[in-house]
Structures are given as structure tokens and as C-alpha cells.
């Protein structure tokens, strides 16, 4: 635990230097967006990686967080800093609601995945229909730079904000790995019936995980809203976010502390590499990205972190595959 904590602190410290050491604003922005997707991936990881419950619908939480903070700010004049925890809570509540229904009825595996996808779609359609979200026109947050407004004239503010969120997510995950709750969650992932036999309240454990996961994704949504100042139903609840949220941790290593971070940086790196190769031929770079994705899965079935651990174990003379 201490070593992991040390690693987190070292990582955060190194990242904190990025705005000062990296001169290129493009690359600073790149790191910032990688951190943003790492946050969403870390949120997914709690439920999917540690809890074994695959969600295809994390946009439901992301979008709720985004809309909640934007609506509070635009329609009710609430300061974004105050709206932020509310957004996390609202997204957590949506998580609890979806979790309550689906776990109550014992949905697992692909059934659970599909039900989360369907909920995200329902929310997208609702956002397209109810007036408070601005319907299809979307919701524009007035441009009013100032740290008090959670709008930073300079990207550095946004950088430290997302770094703080990622730090929070990492510490939360670290706690999870070493807490009784985390142990129960992993037990549920490995074998629900066995966990139940050992006295684990499976339903409540999963419910807590999806609530926590949803709340974290909601923070990401709030961040996105303050960064780009515009939301529409497709941005908030569309499938793109759900896909990113699951890609990042699976590629990086599910159920590991640093998996989502690794996955996010790796995927963004791969995407940049593909652009470098074919950047100006529309579509070809994304096709290459797809090929690289398949190759990554083929050669690193346990994710980047899993592979790193295996190699490390070998080097240290353990000789056994993890």
C-alpha cells in the first residue's frame, strides 16, 4: 500500500510539473485530455474492473453530471464550484437507480451491459425532448473567464483541476484495493454465489460500486461542461463517451490501480501516431487506430498494466506468469 501511495504521489508530482516543463501548449492539452479520459476510465474501472460489471452506458453518468452542473449554473445561477459536488451526486444517484433496477433483477454480463446502454439512450432521448436541457439546441454556458467561475483563461487551471480529479480517483481506487468493501467487490466479481455464501451482501456491494463509479464519471461530465461550455444530447449521452470509458481501462488493465491511466495515455498516443502516419487522409488514421487496437488486444490480453506486471515478475526471477 505504501509503495502504491508513493507511486501515486510521484505520478501526481510529475504531472504537476507538466505545465511548467512542457512548453508546447498542444502537448499540455494532449496530456490534459488523456487525464480526462483516464478519469472516465478510472470511474468505469471501479464497477467494471473491480466489480466485474461491464457497463456500455457510462455516458448516462457523464451526461448527467455535465447537464446537472450546466443547468444549475445557467438556469439557477449556481456557482460551478458548488454545482460540481451536486453534479457528482446526481450522477451517483442515476448510477444507484440503474444499479438498483438491474441488480435487483439479477442482471449480469452482457444483459447488464445492454441495460446500461439502453438507459443512456433513454436519457439522450429525454435530453432531446425536455425544455430544461435546451432540447436539441443544446445548452451554452456563458463565456465568463475567471477561476471563481471555474472557467480558466489559461489552460493551466483546467490542467490542475483534472489532475486533482484524477488524484482523487486514484486515491479512491487505492482505498478500494485495501478496504473491506473492495475485498467484497472483488469477491463478487470472482464468484457471486461464493461471495454470498461467505456472507457478502452482493446487491449492496454492487450498488455501492455503481454509485461510486457514476459519481466519478459525473465529475468528469461537470469538468467537460466547464471546459467546452456547450452541451447537446449527443455530446452528453451519445455512445462515444461510453466507448472511451470502457476502452481505456480494458486496454490499460482492468481491475488495476494504474491500468486506466496507462490505457488512456497509450490510446491517445496510438491515435496521435496514426495521425502522424496518415493525418491528412480522412479516415485512414482512424482505420490504423483500429488495427493497432486489435493488435494491442492480441499481444497484451491482460492489458498494458497486466503485461508490465508479468514482465516485471519475470525479470525479478519469479518465473511464474501472473
Amino acid at each position: 500500500m505504501r509503495r502504491q501511495l508513493l507511486a501515486i504521489v510521484a505520478f501526481l508530482a510529475a504531472m504537476a510539473l507538466v505545465p511548467h516543463l512542457v512548453g508546447s501548449e498542444f502537448w499540455r492539452n494532449w496530456v490534459m485530455m488523456a487525464l480526462f479520459y483516464a478519469l472516465l476510465g478510472q470511474a468505469w474501472n471501479i464497477l467494471g474492473g473491480y466489480g466485474g460489471q461491464f457497463s456500455f452506458g457510462h455516458a448516462a453518468f457523464f451526461g448527467t453530471g455535465a447537464y446537472c452542473s450546466a443547468i444549475l449554473h445557467v438556469h439557477y445561477g449556481v456557482n460551478p464550484w458548488i454545482a460540481l459536488p451536486a453534479a457528482g451526486m446526481a450522477a451517483g444517484l442515476v448510477g444507484a437507480f440503474i444499479g438498483f433496477l438491474s441488480f435487483r433483477y439479477g442482471l449480469r454480463g452482457s444483459y447488464f451491459a445492454l441495460v446500461t446502454l439502453a438507459f443512456a439512450e433513454v436519457l439522450r432521448i429525454l435530453a432531446n425532448t425536455v425544455p430544461i436541457t435546451g432540447k436539441g439546441v443544446g445548452l451554452l454556458i456563458p463565456l465568463d473567464p475567471g477561476a471563481a467561475n471555474m472557467q480558466f483563461a489559461d489552460r493551466t487551471g483546467y490542467f490542475y483541476l483534472i489532475l486533482a480529479f484524477v488524484g482523487l480517483a486514484l486515491l479512491l481506487t487505492l482505498w478500494l484495493e485495501h478496504s473491506r468493501f473492495g475485498a467484497r467487490l472483488v469477491a463478487v466479481r470472482e464468484n457471486e454465489d461464493a461471495a454470498r455464501a461467505l456472507g457478502v451482501d452482493v446487491f449492496r456491494t454492487k450498488l455501492a460500486a455503481i454509485t461510486l463509479s457514476g459519481a466519478l464519471a459525473g465529475l468528469g461530465g461537470s469538468y467537460y461542461a466547464q471546459l467546452f461550455l456547450y452541451l447537446d444530447p449527443g455530446i452528453a449521452y451519445g455512445p462515444a463517451i461510453s466507448v472511451e470509458a470502457l476502452l481505456v481501462p480494458i486496454v490499460g488493465g482492468m481491475g488495476t490501480l494504474f491500468g486506466p491511466l496507462l490505457g488512456s495515455f497509450a490510446l491517445h498516443g496510438v491515435s496521435e501516431l496514426a495521425k502522424l502516419a496518415f493525418g491528412e487522409a480522412a479516415g485512414l488514421d482512424l482505420a490504423l487506430y483500429g488495427v493497432l487496437l486489435v493488435l494491442m488486444v492480441m499481444f497484451m490480453p491482460n492489458g498494458l498494466f497486466g503485461m508490465g506486471r508479468t514482465t516485471l515478475a519475470r525479470l525479478l526471477g519469479g518465473g511464474r506468469d501472473a
Binding site: 512542457v22 512548453g23 508546447s24 501548449e25 498542444f26 502537448w27 502522424l276 493525418g279 491528412e280 487522409a281
Partner: peptide, 28 residues
């Protein structure tokens, strides 16, 4: 049309990456 110009991005990203890593002061 698309093939016409293709140096700019490649050259630039390579340079950007290099500068970001190496100089570390104020990039461009």
C-alpha cells in the same frame, strides 16, 4: 486534393514532440 499537402502536420508534430521533450522552456 487531400494528398496535395501533407508535410505540414508530420513535420510539425515531430518538431513539437521534440521541443516538448527537449527544450522544455517555451516550446515554439
Amino acid at each position: 486534393v487531400k494528398r496535395k499537402k501533407s508535410i505540414s502536420r508530420r513535420a510539425f508534430v515531430a518538431a513539437a514532440g521534440g521541443a516538448a521533450l527537449a527544450s522544455g522552456i517555451s516550446g515554439f
